[in-house]
Every structure is written in structure tokens, then in C-alpha cells.
Amino acid sequence: MPLEAHLALGVFILLAYTLEAITGFGSVVIALSLGALLLPIEQLLPILVPLNICMTGYLSWRYRRLIDRRLLAGSILPGMLVGTLLGYCLSPWLDGQALKRGFGVLILWFALRELLRRPSAKVRHVPIWIMRATTTAAGACHGLFASGGPLLVLALAGSPLDKSRLRATLVAVWFTLNGLLTLAFALDGRLLPALPQVVSFAPLLVLGIWLGERLHRRVDERYFRLGIYAVLVVTGVLLVAPWKLF
């Protein structure tokens, strides 16, 4: 990887993992969407997923008392696990460029949805069958891109969790699923070549957690996320169009 690309990816990782420390999701979806301007998605995943389990493992342990275990085990993990397995098994059969463009469409949909949503709009309760279907679809996206967060957050719309309990529950989901994906990458041979880059980017996790913890307490989460969604709109457009930074 050229030095310029390595430095740019480091900036993307810091931004993405700071956001996850604030909200409980978004690290891989942001780092992957921006990083895909530099490298193929299949090369990025074995770097970003092990980094994610380091962060989510720490946050899951620190905030373990805030995790909604009933929601996690009963409503989230069953569908997410099935979907993740399905997405992982399908990924070798999909065209890389089409996968990248499909990911761009997903990013655009999610970011535009969040940017256009009225702040005063009431959150409606999601019927259980829609929640289960959306959770399984989120798992499939996670198996393909390790980025099931947007759809999972949609599935959890209307849940009574406050932002701290939601964050704790979400990071427990990512720790579980990304632990399984990391094992899969180890078995299919993709993890070992990526380990030097995982180690080189690991110090950024410490800085990201430190920044994210403070921003979680002090900064209005909505305004911070609006800026991220605006970046994602631009990124989604760039992913749909064949273009690279370096």
C-alpha cells in the first residue's frame, strides 16, 4: 500500500472508530466506505474487522451492565447470525465491482434517510416480523461488508433503549459477529497477511475510544452524526462511480 494511502486509511479509521465509541455502530461502514476509494473491499475487511473486535470487546466489557441481554439473545443475534453466514457464503460468488457499487447504494440510502429525517419526527414501533426480516438482512450485509449497523439500527427503531444502553447492546452484537468473521478470515487465509496492518493501525483505536468517550458525554450526538452522514453521501456517490483516490 502506498504511504499516502496508508496515511489516508489511518485518518478514515480514526474518524470511524471515534464515531463507534460515541454511537455504538458505524466504524466499519465508514472506514470501509471511505477505504474502498483506496483498496478493494476484500482487502480492507481482514484489516477492519479484527480492529473492530478489539474496540467492541473493550466497550462490551466496560459497559456490560448496560447491555440488554434479552433483546440481544432473543431478537438480534438469531437473525444476525443466519444473515451473516448467508452473506459470507455468497461473497465469493459476487462480482467485486458490483459489490462495491451495491455497497455504495446502501450507504447512499442510509445516509440520505438520516439526513432527510425530520428531528421532530416520531419514532414508530417496528412490528416484530419486520424487525426479524430487517435483522436478517442486516446480518447478510454484515456477512458481505461487515457493515450491518445501518439496517440493524433501522430494525431497532422504536426500542425503549436510551443512547447508552443502545450503544452497549450494539457493540456486544459487533463483538460477537466480528469475532466469528475474524475466525472465518483466519480459516480462509485472509487474516495472516493483514496482521501487520492491523497492528500498525491498532494505536488509533486507543485515541478513537478516548475521543469518542468524551464526545459521547459532551457533544450533541445528532449534529456530530449529521456531519458523518454528509460525508457518507459523498462517499456513496464515489463508490457507485468507478474512481480511486490513489
Rank of each mutant, 00 (worst) to 15 (best):
P242E: 12
L37H: 12
A5W: 04
F25C: 03
G24F: 04
T84D: 08
C141D: 10
L81Y: 05
V240A: 10
E4N: 13
R65C: 06
L181S: 13
L3E: 12
R64D: 11
W129C: 06
R70M: 04
Q43A: 04
F103I: 11
P127V: 09
G79S: 15
V233Q: 07
L39T: 13
I13N: 03
R62T: 14
G10A: 14
L45S: 00
L66V: 05
L192P: 00
G74E: 03
A5L: 11
T182V: 08
V219G: 05
V171G: 05
A168L: 07
H142Y: 12
L106I: 14
S75M: 15
I107R: 02
L77C: 12
S159G: 05
T135W: 04
V28M: 09
I30N: 03
A184N: 12
V240Q: 02
I76R: 00
A133R: 03
C89H: 10
A8Y: 09
L32R: 04
V153A: 11
F110S: 03
D68H: 13
G79T: 14
L39Q: 07
R190Q: 15
A111F: 08
G139K: 00
L81A: 11
V199Y: 13
M131L: 13
L48V: 00
G79F: 08
F145D: 02
L38Q: 06
M131G: 05
K122R: 05
T136H: 01
A146D: 07
E42F: 15
L59G: 02
V234Y: 04
I67V: 09
F12Q: 03
A111M: 06
R64A: 09
L170T: 00
P119Q: 14
L180W: 04
R218K: 15
L215Q: 04
V173P: 07
N178L: 03
I22D: 00
V234I: 10
D188I: 07
A157Y: 10
H142A: 10
Y223C: 11
P2L: 07
R64I: 11
L90R: 04
I128Q: 11
P119N: 13
A21K: 01
P40G: 02
L154P: 00
T134N: 01
P160K: 08
